[in-house]
């Protein structure tokens, strides 16, 4: 497995955790006590559900309980690619991560080797972020805005 630079020990889920993550990636109860309702359906207590979510988050499996917002409905966002000299990749990646409007940042196998997503409240602010990144890194950004979403993240079975 030497080709994966960031190696993890795969996280194992208990059967209750599997039930929780497979059951509530969508259709989360929008009621005053959502965790109590989930608990009732799982036959455990509200405290158990809350503790399980906190543990999943602690272990890096759960990012959050929240909304996936359809792209191009609120604010402005774009995928951005950059060609960075390999010896500068860490340094440049750190500069980009420091921008609060950057929410994904991955190294990929291509001459364009750094790929990130910028989300801002409007296009002007988006372009300002890109300009600032270019100034700080000395690398050109290639802005690849969305034109049409055919399929978006609807969760996955564990």
């Amino acid at each position: 497995m030497a080709r994966w630079p960031d190696r993890f020990i795969d996280m194992q889920l208990t059967s209750l955790e599997t039930k929780l993550v497979n059951g509530w990636q969508k259709g989360f109860p929008l009621i005053p006590r959502p965790y109590a309702q989930i608990a009732e359906k799982m036959g455990i207590t509200e405290k158990d559900v809350i503790a399980m979510l906190a543990s999943l988050k602690e272990r890096g499996i759960l990012t959050r309980v929240g909304a996936i917002v359809r792209p191009n409905t609120v604010g402005a966002s774009s995928l951005v690619a950059m060609a960075v000299a390999p010896e500068r990749l860490d340094e440049v990646a750190q500069i980009i991560c420091a921008e609060p409007q950057v929410n994904h940042n991955y190294e990929r196998e291509n001459k364009l080797n750094l790929w990130f997503v910028v989300t801002a409240s409007n296009n002007t602010e988006l372009d300002e972020v890109l300009y600032r990144i270019e100034q700080k890194t000395g690398c050109a950004t290639v802005k690849l805005p969305l034109e049409k979403a055919y399929h978006i993240d609807l969760g996955f079975n564990v």
């Binding site: 969508k26 989360f28 929008l30 990012t63 959050r64 909304a67 978006i152 996955f156």
Partner: peptide, 13 residues
């Protein structure tokens, strides 16, 4: 909102 619920990371799994 396309979906509301648990948002997971692929990599640790």
């Amino acid at each position: 909102i396309a979906r509301f619920g648990l948002v997971l990371q692929h990599r640790p799994l």
